[in-house]
C-alpha cells in the first residue's frame, strides 16, 4: 500500500488525496439527491471493479455477474430476516455462497474448455436459470419479492446496516475505494501478472509454467465473492429484492458499463466510468422526466449509444487517454 503511494506520480497523489477529501466532506454541503447519485456511483464503481478483475485482468468475459449480486443480496437478507443475523456477519455467508456459484461456473467452463463467447453464454445461462428458479422459490418470496421491513426502533443500528442515507454513502465510498486499492495491489502481485499472461495468450502462459486453470479459478472466485458484497449493499440499501430485477441480464450488462467505458484492465477505469456514466444517466432521467417521456427507456437508450460510441472509437476506454492527457500514468496497468 505504501509502495503504491510511493510509486504514484506526484500529480496523481494530489488528485487522489483531493478527491477523497472532497468526497469525505461532501455530505456537509450536498443535498439528498446528490448524495443518492454519488452512492449509486460508488456502487457501480465497486461492482465494476469486481467484474474488471475477471474480464480486464484475467480476460474471462462474464455476462452473468448479476447472479453474484443476487445470491449475495438474498443470502444476507435471508439471514437477517429468518435468523436475525446481521449483515456484517451475513456478508461472509453471502460471499461464500456467491463464490461457490462462481467456482461451479468456472470449474465447468475452464475444465471443459468453454471459452470466449461460449463462456459468456454459460454465465448468462446460469444467471437466467437462477432467476427463474428464484421466481419459484417460496423461501425467498418468489416473484413477489423479498422485503426488509422498515423498523423505527432499528434506525441508527449501523451494525445492522439499518441507517440513513449517510451510512450508505460512506459505506459505498469505503467499498469503492477499498476495491480500487485491492485491485491495484492484486494487479501488481504475482497472481495479477499471471492473470494478464493468461488474458494475452493462454498457451504461451502455460508454456511458462502458469497453471491457467488455477489462475482463472482464482479470478472467478475472487470476482464473484467481491460482487456478492455489492449484493449485500444493494439489498440493505434498497430493502427489497425481486428476482426479475436483481438477476436480469440487463443488470449484468449495467454492471459492466463502467469498466468498459472507463477502461478495462485499469484500476481507475471502473471508477472514472461510474463517475461519467451514472450522473449522465441520472441527469438524463431527471430532464426527460420533466418532459413526460418514458424516462428509464431514455436512460437505457443513452447507455446503448455510449456503449457503441466507446467501443467503436475508444475500445480501451476513457481512462488511458485521460491519464495520458494529464500526466497521470496508471502504474498498475
Amino acid at each position: 500500500m505504501i509502495e503504491l503511494w510511493r510509486i504514484a506520480p506526484p500529480r496523481g497523489r494530489i488528485v487522489i488525496a483531493l478527491a477523497l477529501a472532497v468526497l469525505l466532506a461532501l455530505p456537509l454541503a450536498a443535498d439528498r439527491y446528490v448524495i443518492s447519485v454519488l452512492t449509486l456511483i460508488f456502487y457501480f464503481a465497486y461492482v465494476g471493479q469486481a467484474w474488471n478483475l475477471m474480464m480486464g485482468y484475467a480476460g474471462q468475459l462474464s455476462l452473468g455477474h448479476a447472479l453474484y449480486v443476487g445470491v449475495g443480496g438474498y443470502v444476507a437478507a435471508l439471514m437477517w430476516l429468518k435468523l436475525g443475523i446481521g449483515p456484517w456477519l451475513g456478508v461472509f455467508a453471502a460471499v461464500a455462497a456467491a463464490a461457490a456459484f462462481g467456482a461451479a461456473i468456472g470449474w465447468l467452463g475452464f475444465r471443459f474448455g468453454i471459452a470466449g463467447v461460449y463462456f459468456a453464454l454459460l454465465t448468462i445461462a446460469f444467471a437466467e436459470f437462477t432467476r427463474i428458479g428464484f421466481d419459484h422459490l417460496e423461501l425467498t418470496g418468489g416473484a413477489a419479492g423479498l422485503f426488509l421491513p422498515f423498523e423505527e426502533k432499528r434506525i441508527g443500528e449501523w451494525w445492522n446496516l439499518r441507517g440513513g442515507q449517510l451510512l450508505f454513502y460512506y459505506l459505498g465510498l469505503a467499498l469503492a475505494a477499498g476495491a480500487a486499492l485491492l485491485v491495484a495491489l492484486m494487479a501488481r502481485s504475482r497472481l495479477g501478472y499471471q492473470w494478464r499472461a493468461v488474458r494475452e495468450d493462454e498457451t504461451a502462459a502455460r508454456a511458462l509454467g502458469i497453471d491457467a486453470f488455477a489462475v482463472k479459478m482464482a479470478a472467478v472466485v475472487i470476482s464473484s465473492g467481491m460482487t456478492a458484497v455489492g449484493g449485500v449493499f444493494y439489498a440493505f440499501y434498497y430493502n427489497n429484492l425481486f428476482p426479475s430485477q436483481v438477476f436480469e441480464i440487463s443488470r449484468s450488462i449495467e454492471l459492466i458499463l463502467a469498466p468498459i467505458v472507463g477502461g478495462l484492465g485499469t484500476v481507475f477505469g471502473p471508477v472514472i466510468g461510474a463517475f461519467v456514466l451514472t450522473p449522465l444517466g441520472e441527469g438524463l432521467t431527471a430532464v426527460t422526466g420533466r418532459f413526460g417521456i418514458n424516462a428509464p427507456g431514455v436512460k437505457a437508450v443513452f447507455y446503448g449509444v455510449v456503449l457503441i460510441v466507446i467501443i467503436s472509437a475508444m475500445p480501451s476506454g476513457v481512462w488511458p487517454r485521460l491519464a495520458a492527457l494529464f500526466g497521470l500514468k496508471d502504474h498498475a496497468r
Partner: peptide, 27 residues
C-alpha cells in the same frame, strides 16, 4: 500438461512467436 512440464524445468519457445502483445517487454 505443458505448465507441469515447464515447472519440472523444461522451457520452450514457439516457432510462431507468441509474446503477450499488450504487455511491456520487461513484463
Amino acid at each position: 500438461t505443458s505448465d507441469a512440464v515447464c515447472r519440472r524445468g523444461i522451457a520452450r519457445t514457439f516457432q510462431i512467436v507468441r509474446p503477450f502483445p499488450a504487455l511491456s517487454v520487461e513484463d
